[in-house]
Nucleic acid binder design. Structure first.
Lengths: 214, 214
DNA sequence: CATCTATCTGAACGACGTCAAGATGAATCT
DNA sequence: AGATTCATCTTGACGTCGTTCAGATAGATG
């Protein structure tokens, strides 16, 4: 009960209201993201999403078990967008020593540029006490692990590799949640901009201090 | 308009309903913490707090501007409790090289043991885009900075000291938010317990990698 | 004592998440 | 084709929430 109802016969793939009254699952998720971007997470009610999609307050319940499941779908898209951002950052940085820092900066910038989406992503994760399953095998988390593995020349033990990945991930998440805290403003200015500040913080995190000893 | 109305004449310091109908500000915060611990953050409505304190749903508005201000008061208590936990941890660890890791472990354990309270603390901070002001001068943040400063022998530049503190704080917060994620369970088991896991992660964060070079 | 003022109650408003009953219309089956 | 089936959407309702306001209550003050 996920992706049936493809465009019925002869209609544009994803615009207008093609079906019965529309390809709602998708329209709802898009409406939710629109609300998130323009009005923030506080305004993201199920009724507002339905309103934005031009449908009655009860309509979403034919596509999502409850509000949480809609948010899960939004979060899912968010993780994909984060994957893409990290992939791009990884491709851009040629220096393998800098690559890790670049990944971190890209991660935090994603959160800074999509604060509401990032918040939904982590709120969903906390509700389930777990990161999305896909991440362990091919997602953003895996990109971080691979980058660390490359940097260490593939010599790190599986446990050390995992610990280092977790350490890096936690640092990135923590910084992502606090990047816009007012207290950091003077330091950002002193360092000549937010990116420099980010690099500064990440360079103090010796993700490889232990791996390099081996 | 904060702390007047101490116990009126002859009554136990904090039980029953001593005053007009009670020392509400305090009673409400206590009721809120009780609800947080027993039913979690989702159950923490203003009405539920009033109910728990035995007053009408409108009563809290004579002591707090709105729900957010009540939560601020709860968060304020939370930060004090965190301060205490860190102070204790800092006193216990004699080895200055281990002290930083001990602080980190204590921080995350506090979050693990008071998950709902910790969540309220950071939700409030995010709403204001700032950590509590007191922290910069004498709170938990300051303890972390001092510990780093001691460890580096007081030789770190102010900027490096600040960057290292932020890095450590972000890592601690990130780990605190994810410590109970299911994906980490196998690794915890492999390392022989949650504390060992925490130490493992923190030891991969070379908060001093850069400071030690100087 | 009367009065003042902080505190609390009761009732109400709009918004929320959710559900049950009914309407609607595309798809399927003779 | 027409009848039927079934997913989809609407209407209306329920209980809860945050918040406000007019009025009751009872310490504190004169």
């Amino acid at each position: 009960m996920s992706e049936m109802t493809q465009t019925p016969s002869s209609l544009a793939p994803s615009e207008a209201r093609p079906y019965h009254h529309g390809d709602l699952s998708r329209a709802l998720v898009e409406a939710a993201r629109r609300i998130l971007e323009t009005e923030g997470p506080a305004a993201l009610s199920l009724r507002a999403v339905a309103r934005e999609a031009g449908v009655s307050p009860a309509a979403p319940y034919h596509h999502f078990k409850d509000k949480g499941e809609l948010l899960d779908a939004v979060a899912h898209e968010g993780w994909h967008a984060l994957d893409a951002a990290l992939t791009e950052a990884r491709a851009k940085s040629v220096d393998s020593k800098e690559r890790m820092t670049s990944l971190g900066v890209a991660y935090v910038c994603f959160a800074r540029d999509n604060p509401a989406l990032y918040r939904v992503m982590y709120d969903c994760s906390r509700d389930k006490d777990a990161l999305p399953d896909q991440m362990k095998e091919e997602g953003a988390y895996c990109q971080v692990r691979n980058t660390i593995d490359e940097r260490s020349g593939g010599t790190a033990s599986p446990i050390d590799l995992e610990l280092a990945t977790i350490a890096a991930w936690c640092a990135g998440h923590g910084l992502a949640e606090m990047i816009s805290f007012k207290q950091f403003a003077p330091l950002k200015e002193a360092l000549g901009g937010e990116e420099a500040f980010l690099r500064g913080v990440f360079e103090h995190l010796g993700m490889f201090a232990k791996l390099d000893q081996a």
